[in-house]
């Protein structure tokens, strides 16, 4: 019997993390599924991930597991799925951020760790709104510091589809963000030329903004079925890039 147990333990895959799901009740009454991927030996930070306007995909779930293997707990919240919203930018623009606030509160309550948010593309809209809601609610209290900052991959914060030759209009949240923001921007995007403008908007709300350009990759590079060899390589190291960004933000607060 002991020999059988030993064989089973050897054959079982070596897990660097454990995963589970939990339901979080939103203010609307809807329930959001939280996918929890905890590291075996985790740090004092928790990364709370919100999928972009493309919706929750397997790629993002794999990314969360890779990040967890580096010692950071990752909890993924399906914003669109919880409201049965289609995966498109307009769905993200319509979210107020109150569900993000609820999930941040849930994450902090259940983990006791400093929470960092991460999203991509138009996911930046509800995530920054949720971050603002957190600051508005807990400003001046010890709990305010429980939200460490936000990591944004190729954020999209414009109010409507851009028109050629016309100034880009940003959503109000671009000027109302005060938590630290770390932007990871693919080089091969038109938006990389407008980062100084986006940075100015975010800083006007009090946010400390750090920007890293990801060389020779396009937007949504890690989701592309036609990814180049280089994009695939960068996708492999993206978990490390994200963890480094989180560590940098954390270090700047100490």
């Amino acid at each position: 019997m002991h020999r059988l147990i030993l064989i089973l333990l050897i054959l079982l895959p070596s897990l660097s993390h454990a995963s589970e799901t939990r339901l979080v009740t939103l203010p609307s009454g809807d329930e959001m599924t939280l996918r929890i991927v905890n590291a075996r030996e985790s740090e004092n930070q928790l990364l709370l991930g919100f999928p972009c306007d493309q919706g929750m995909r397997e790629v993002e779930l794999h990314l969360s597991e890779s990040i967890a293997s580096q010692g950071v707990d990752v909890w993924m919240a399906d914003l669109l799925g919880s409201h049965f919203l289609p995966a498109q930018p307009s769905s993200m623009r319509g979210l107020t951020g109150e569900e993000v606030l609820t999930v941040i509160e849930d994450a902090y309550e259940h983990s006791g760790k400093q929470v960092y948010l991460i999203t991509a593309g138009f996911g930046a809209i509800p995530v920054l709104r949720g971050a603002k809601a957190w600051v508005d609610k807990y400003q001046g209290t010890a709990q305010e510091q429980a939200l460490g900052g936000v990591i944004l991959l190729y954020p999209e914060l414009h109010a409507s589809e851009p028109e050629p030759g016309v100034d880009l209009e940003y959503l109000p949240i671009a000027d109302q963000t005060s938590v630290p923001v770390y932007i990871l921007q693919p080089e091969l995007t038109p938006a990389r030329w407008w980062l100084d403008q986006l940075k100015a908007h975010l800083e006007s709300g009090g946010a400390k903004v750090t920007i890293d350009i990801l060389p020779k990759v396009r937007g949504y590079f890690f989701l592309r079925p036609n990814a180049t060899a280089h994009e695939k390589s960068v996708s492999q190291v993206l978990p490390r890039i994200v963890v480094n960004a989180l560590h940098r933000m954390n270090a700047e607060q100490e």
Binding site: H158, E161, E163, P164, G165, P190, A191, W193, W194
Partner: peptide, 23 residues
């Protein structure tokens, strides 16, 4: 020229006026 997406194209008439645009 406020280019926010690629490709972006403008059609300019003989007087130098931008008449059409396409994202």
């Amino acid at each position: 020229w406020k280019i926010f997406a690629f490709p972006t194209t403008f059609l300019i008439d003989k007087e130098g006026n931008i008449t059409y645009a396409l994202f």
